[in-house]
Design a protein around this nucleic acid. Sequence first.
DNA 1: ATTTTTTTTGACCGATTGGAAAAATTCTAG
DNA 2: CTAGAATTTTTCCAATCGGTCAAAAAAAAT
Lengths: 211, 211
Amino acid sequence: MSAKAQRPRPKTRIQREKQEVILEAALDVFSQFGFRGSTIDQIAEAAGMSKPNLLYYFKSKEDIHAPLLARILDTWLEPLREMSPEGDALSEIRSYIRRKLEMSRDFPRESRLFANEMLRGAPGFYEILHTDLKTLVDEKALIITGWMAEGRLARCDPYHLIFSIWATTQHYADFDIQVQAVLGSERGGDNRFEDAALFLDQLYLHGLTPK
Amino acid sequence: MSAKAQRPRPKTRIQREKQEVILEAALDVFSQFGFRGSTIDQIAEAAGMSKPNLLYYFKSKEDIHAPLLARILDTWLEPLREMSPEGDALSEIRSYIRRKLEMSRDFPRESRLFANEMLRGAPGFYEILHTDLKTLVDEKALIITGWMAEGRLARCDPYHLIFSIWATTQHYADFDIQVQAVLGSERGGDNRFEDAALFLDQLYLHGLTPK
DNA sequence: ATTTTTTTTGACCGATTGGAAAAATTCTAG
DNA sequence: CTAGAATTTTTCCAATCGGTCAAAAAAAAT
């Protein structure tokens, strides 16, 4: 046994590039059909390579799926992490909504991948939800409760407030087909996110302004 | 060719019962894994019968899936249909929210089946969304706009108002795992729907009351 | 230029998939 | 009780599934 064999070899240029291509293709497929509904062949074709070639870079289907999930939860919660107790209560919440909506616009596949994972009970996600996510939300709920105590925000359940923000913003990514169908071709073009931002801003402004 | 062969035989008692058992089992499976992620074997086992036996009642996987979808959209939109222009604006909207939330509580699988179908682009649903659904929402949006013109409701985009109601209520069915994880064991028990109802009622009351 | 390493390919594997066919069984109407 | 219909089981199929392996090809290092 040599010491050299222990440390993993550095990645080559091709490895980095192809792994990126594969993850990109996998995101396309997984976000539509979920983990079980997607096939390696499908991903390989979307990535423009053969199945054995793809399996040279990722040992298994799960090995492609896992890093996508890991990457997403982090990105997904970043806007919430940035909510600061020092800022103005209403401004902080409204800018959180705006940023979350921008993510639905710019990363709809990531949103759908996440939704797919939730729908099947988040098997490879369960612990993180109960630890990392819960801790973060608890922390932010405390901040929000503080704002309410100071009279800067109408009193309400901070957890359900956060849920409602998640729901309303992610809806535009996850149910995009429905949204576009209902809005029709003229209204659903590109301004549906601007209209949504306007509506949500107003709803939460009036809904959360203390009386 | 006899005329008798044309008209389908009446269903027997066993046919009606077993078809119901199968659809029930299929709802369990499809709502978790989506159409492509579910297998006939899985559904057959959940229904307590063999695969060929199941295929005696439904010719194919799609033949099990289709009636579930058809049944759901109808049930799903019933609360919206009941929104009447004669009622009080705010009361109508608040009771719509309440009814929709009750459906998420009582029929979470139906909600998840619907969500799964949206995520993959609603292939067997596309036309209905653009015709039936759009027509209904257009009609109700007109009613809402009328209320606003009468000064009974704060001015806002009626379409995005409806979207936000769909999103916030369905969230409690589709993302139930996440909701329960964040709320924890004590707060997430059985009163999460009551708490949600309270929060949403307040948010939309203050958010939509004309100034 | 040649050796070594990395990448790609093609052929293949056992398990599972959606589904067909037919025999065996059970139910039901007369 | 019995003929005919309805139901269930057994067996089977071709296609696809996730994944392996060895050999060929291409890059990189010497």
